[in-house]
Nucleic acid binder design. Sequence first.
RNA 1: GCGCGGUUAGCUCAGUUGGAUAGAGCGUUGCCCUCCGGAGGCAAAGGCCAUAAGUUCGAAUCUUAUACCGCGCACCA
Length: 549
Amino acid sequence: MRSTKHLTALLHTVLQELGLPWPEKTTIEPPKDKKFGDLAVNCALLLAKQVGKPPRTLAEEMAKALLGASADIAKAEVAGPGFVNITFTPQFWQANIVRTEEQGDAYGSSTLGKGKKMQVEFVSANPTGPLHVGHGRGAAVGDSMVRILRFSGYETQAEYYLNDAGNQMQTLGLSIWLRVQELVGNSTVPFPETCYQGEYITDIARGMLQENATLPTLPEAEGRQLCYETGLALILDGIKNDLKNFRVHHDVWFSELSLVANGEVERTLNAMKASGHVYEADGALWFRSSALGDDKDRVLRKSDGSLTYFASDIAYHANKYNRGFDAVIDVWGADHHGYIPRMRACIEALGRPAEAFDVILVQLVNLMREGKQVAMSTRAGEFETLEDVLKDVGVDAARFIFLSRKSDSKLDFDLDLVRQRTMDNPVYYVQYAHARVKAVLRRAAEQGIGTQASSSLALLQEEEALDLLRCLDRFPQVVQDAATGCAPHFISYYLMDLAGLLHKYYAVHQVVLAENLEQTAARLRLLQSVAQTVKNGLLLLGVEAPDSM
RNA sequence: GCGCGGUUAGCUCAGUUGGAUAGAGCGUUGCCCUCCGGAGGCAAAGGCCAUAAGUUCGAAUCUUAUACCGCGCACCA
């Protein structure tokens, strides 16, 4: 980050001196192969046609000018078809340590999103049962995005949308009610397939009976209402508890019912009527979403007079923007992708720019045990709860695995592997890098050796040290890319790289050398900077950075 | 049928705005413990980036077509 910024500024000056424009598509990035230097610039290739000179000639001119422009540049070479490869001096890289020391826990943060208000809505599982692993992935992704956005300077709110207004709530009340009747031997019909089959429903019914033995004798409407209210409260408590254990936090729990009750849905529909996005046909109220890119128009109020889920969802999103968010991100299960076009149409109808709405699709989790897929069926009430998985593998491992894949690709979650506390499990590989540094620092402290700021960083000349320094420099950019790309997995991949370089350095160079305190102090500072960066990165994933393991 | 996503090493997956000889982990094979935590490191083998055309200085990346896989196409939520 520091290196690319520095070179970008130098290149601007140099191009100006040479009388050349700055090509829009210029890239300044670390090349794949280290032998091409620290950073590669492609702009001679881009300018060649426009200027009418061979790319290599242009590149030569740039290289020469860059070399003279700053003492931080050790080499500027032309290679391949016309790349300019820049190598910085070791002193330049060593200064990264000072930067991480100064910034500490803030290293990697930025003001990228300064002044922007963002909202991330995630999990939002219907409160009709406990969370399962799929919800866990959405929870990890959403929570991590919130952390990354905040670290990048966005004012960010985490929200859970509670679907407490629909048919499913009716079904929940009925399911519990019928189980209550079963428990006291009143059932005359088999338990309906349309009701929730899970064992937790019977547990709730049993609990309610213990509290109130007269429950089954209540009139059905009253009994079902009571079952619904109590059931919802219990399930919600369970969900909140699961999320807390998973280190996932929501700032706001937003009730769908509240939107309907206070007339906000009606008001939003009226506003859309006024702007001509809505019409009546066949006794129903329709949203003309097909005019805004959707396949077909969508019903908002059914011919029986009741509202569709989509109607309250529109009101919900209108409400979000009215709360002042510049952009909202919804985290959805990938099976809802068909919902995106109508939602985009809705955003447009609300008069918001397309950039103000983003969806992160989270693919399903394929849970594996002993090499076989674990069957999951919500309808049959057979699913692996998040709670069970966390008990099995732990929060750190689960979060890291969820965040070490692109969200929009299927995830094989191998319980046997994720449970392992070995280096086959990437989370331990990364955490071990942190613990290892802390162990060395403890060891040094025992011998009375500290990390004096006065120590000479110029002693860090080894190739493995420079690799670490270059990697440290990438971190702020990685965080920003994760923020703008909605891609927490960039952080996990980065951390595995950094941890690998640390282990490599450690294997080659002994850090604590009693006979060379100056060298030792410099190396300790390098390691301390690495540990700090690992810790900052892990925090963005919601994973702990242990001092010992 | 239409739409969305996917197809990269034996397996699981990265690959940013089109860049140089396509990467990592696991697995396989071979090596390194007088050493601060070996819970580690080094090396080798392993590829028609699904297929075919196109765009251009240059394509895993962009376009089009085809194949296969997954998902979605409600006056459900």
